[in-house]
Amino acid sequence: MLILQAGGTFGIRQNSATVLYAALIIVTIILIFVIKYILSRFNLFLKKSAAVRPQKKLDVQALKNAAAKLGLLKEETAFLINYCRLCNIKELPLIAETEQCINGQFKTLYKHICSEETEDNQAQTEDKKLLLFRIIHKIENGKRSLTLVTNSIAFPAGLTLNYTDENGNSYPMELIQNTPAEMIL
């Protein structure tokens, strides 16, 4: 803060306490605006996350489409849809990137089937378990057939391979090293 002194020439003297208070007020105002900006961004984030709500019910059409791609029969698809509804499973990603995405749901289905078992319907329950395991097997095989190999460089080291010659003789191998120049088996 500048203070003019009386006298012939203008003299400037700084008052350190006043300057400190002025700086503190300016910093406080800036801090208020920064906090207001952060809170407005956080409010916008909350509104967006509230708009993206989880599914309320199973997407049957998506499940049927995925099941058809994996080669499941209509009875198997209907079985999955029925048990997903009974177990309140809202999403069953049959074509998932990792097995962990779907293993939890299948465990839930299996536990529900086991809980229905009584002495009177033990054979029917075993048939349902068998059907569930057949479906899981078909899904795993279907995923393998959906995976397209476009370049052998993508094969990781340690991959187990099976070579079959023209006579039908099969030779199991393991990929030791894979470089753009060569594959060492």
Rank of each mutant, 00 (worst) to 15 (best):
G71C: 03
G71T: 05
L72E: 01
L72S: 03
L73P: 00
L73I: 05
L73K: 12
K74D: 15
E75R: 08
E75T: 13
E75A: 11
E76V: 03
E76P: 01
E76T: 01
T77H: 04
T77W: 01
A78K: 09
A78P: 02
L80D: 03
L80V: 05
L80G: 03
I81F: 04
I81E: 13
I81D: 05
Y83A: 01
C84T: 04
C84H: 03
R85N: 13
R85W: 00
L86R: 12
N88L: 08
K90Q: 10
K90Y: 04
E91M: 06
L92D: 01
L94E: 04
L94N: 02
T98K: 14
T98I: 07
E99D: 14
E99Q: 15
Q100P: 00
Q100H: 11
Q100D: 13
Q100L: 11
C101Y: 13
I102L: 11
N103T: 15
G104N: 12
Q105D: 12
Q105R: 10
K107G: 11
K107N: 14
L109H: 06
Y110G: 05
Y110P: 00
Y110M: 14
Y110D: 14
Y110R: 15
H112E: 09
C114I: 11
C114L: 15
E116I: 07
E117G: 08
E117K: 15
E119D: 13
E119Q: 09
E119K: 11
N121H: 04
Q122P: 00
Q122M: 12
Q122H: 12
Q122K: 14
Q124F: 13
E126V: 13
E126F: 13
D127I: 09
D127M: 14
K129N: 08
L131Q: 15
L131S: 08
L131F: 00
F133Q: 09
R134F: 04
I135Y: 03
I135T: 04
I135C: 00
I136Y: 10
I136S: 10
K138W: 00
K138Q: 06
I139M: 06
G142S: 01
G142W: 01
K143A: 04
K143E: 02
R144Q: 07
L146W: 06
T147G: 00
T147P: 00
T147N: 07
L148K: 13
L148P: 00
V149N: 06
T150N: 13
N151I: 06
S152P: 03
A154E: 13
A154K: 10
F155L: 15
P156V: 11
A157P: 10
A157V: 14
A157Y: 00
G158K: 08
G158I: 07
L159T: 15
L159A: 14
L159E: 12
L161Q: 06
L161C: 14
L161G: 05
Y163N: 05
D165S: 01
D165Y: 03
N167R: 09
N167S: 11
G168N: 04
N169Q: 09
S170C: 08
Y171D: 01
